[in-house]
Simulated assay, not measured.
Amino acid sequence: MSRPGLDADPLSLGAEWFNALFEEIGIDAEVASLTAKSIGTGQIGENVRFVFDYARKGANAPATLVGKFPSDSPESLMTAKMLGHYEREVKFYRTFPKVAGVITPAAFYTDYDADTNRFALIMEDMAPSEQGDQLQGCSVAEAERALSAAAVLHAAHWNDPSLDNYAWLQGSELAPPPALGPEAVSGLWQGFKERYGKRLEAADILVGDAYAAALPAWSEGYDGPHALTHNDFRLDNMLFGTESAPKPLAVVDWQTVGKGAPAGDVAYFIGAGLTREDRPRHEQALLSYYHARLTEEGITDYSFDELYRHYRWFSFYGMSVAFGAAMLVKQTERGDEMFLTMLRRHAGQARDNDALALLA
């Protein structure tokens, strides 16, 4: 069968390709025609919704599917190749069934070509679920839903030595050194300041400068547990459905998945997902909520005090994601506003939790 996203424009995929796919994966259906439409606001990949008109529709035939394919931006393609994003996302869906399909859309088909860095991911359509909005922020109830998913993710491979068996998994023992080391990340901060300096507050620049200067030591200073982590665990990568839906929340965009610090996902989500006004009011309660969910998932050797110490340490992580991504992916008006909003929120998070003291 043809390989979508590898040798064809995904918007041009027709009934013949999907009929071949459905026969291969055991879906009883015959597609007569379909429509394809680009959706979402992805910075690294392009998303397409396929709506089917069937000549024959069996009980397991989906009305719609969503496909994810390489970005049409040369800058984003280069970033994805350098950082291994496309290979990693495909292999995540193939490797971790305790997470993939549980707190994510189910994957029907995955493909990756190492020579061309082309990939395709055909997955369950979560409509009418709605994508979270990084700029608007989320409610406490939505934050609790996200943190419940985080507890499932982290508990699934808590201190699991098998994570070190995968060279494609960020942070594993077999993984190559990061394509961007601490010095390079610090350089991205300098470029970010030059591009956006007039839109930054002096207090936020102070936090960014302190973090950039401490990056070599900070990147080696974590001493807590490890688990499977998303590493871009934020609202724009979450699809919220009704509470009674089979999946009230589905987490997408697993291109940065790795072996990492659970508190990193938590600090990143809370710091960027709640507004500057809401986070201080609900921060401790949300941390307690996550800790309780983690305990329910069977993790009983991680105290709340340890979680909070690691949370403070990783309050800086979201800043590096914000300024790093801003300088490495396709620049858009919404992207600029999103990255600036994230950076301001994480700088405030670091100040409010006295995290600068940890860099001394």
Rank of each mutant, 00 (worst) to 15 (best):
P4C: 13
P4K: 13
D9K: 14
L11M: 15
L13K: 11
E23H: 13
I27N: 10
I27G: 11
E30W: 05
K37H: 10
S38H: 06
I39F: 04
I44F: 13
G45A: 15
E46N: 12
N47T: 15
V48Q: 08
V51D: 14
K57I: 10
G58W: 10
N60E: 14
N60Y: 10
A61F: 13
P62F: 10
A63I: 06
T64P: 02
G67I: 11
P70G: 13
S76E: 14
S76R: 12
L77Y: 03
G84I: 08
H85Y: 15
Y86K: 01
R88W: 05
E89P: 09
F92L: 05
Y93T: 07
T95Y: 09
F96V: 08
P97Y: 13
V102T: 14
T104C: 05
D113N: 12
T116R: 02
F119I: 02
F119N: 01
A120F: 02
L121C: 05
E124Y: 04
M126Q: 10
A127K: 03
S129P: 00
E130Y: 00
S139C: 04
S139D: 03
S139T: 15
A143H: 01
A143S: 05
E144Y: 00
R145G: 00
V152T: 14
L153V: 09
H157D: 03
N159P: 03
D160V: 00
S162N: 03
L163Q: 00
Y166S: 01
A167K: 06
W168D: 02
L169M: 01
S172F: 01
P176G: 09
P178F: 01
P178Y: 01
E183H: 06
A184M: 12
V185W: 07
G187Q: 11
Q190L: 15
G191C: 04
K193W: 06
K193P: 06
E194N: 10
K198Q: 11
L200N: 07
E201K: 13
D204F: 04
D204T: 06
L206E: 15
A210N: 03
A210W: 04
L215H: 05
W218Q: 09
E220V: 08
G224P: 08
P225Y: 02
H226K: 11
L228W: 11
H230M: 09
F233L: 11
M238H: 01
L239S: 03
F240A: 03
E243L: 09
E243P: 00
S244V: 11
A245R: 05
K247P: 10
A250D: 07
Q255V: 07
T256N: 03
A261L: 07
A263G: 11
A267D: 06
A267F: 03
F269K: 09
I270G: 10
P280Y: 09
H282Q: 11
E283M: 03
A285I: 01
L286R: 06
A292S: 10
L294G: 08
T295V: 13
T295N: 15
E296P: 05
E297M: 15
I299V: 15
Y302T: 02
Y302P: 01
F304V: 08
R309K: 15
Y311E: 09
W313Q: 15
F314K: 05
M319L: 14
S320Y: 08
A325C: 07
A326E: 13
V329G: 03
K330P: 00
T332Q: 02
M338I: 15
L340T: 04
L340Y: 03
L340E: 05
T341W: 02
T341Y: 02
M342F: 12
L343E: 04
A347Q: 01
Q349K: 00
A350H: 00
A357E: 08
L359Y: 10
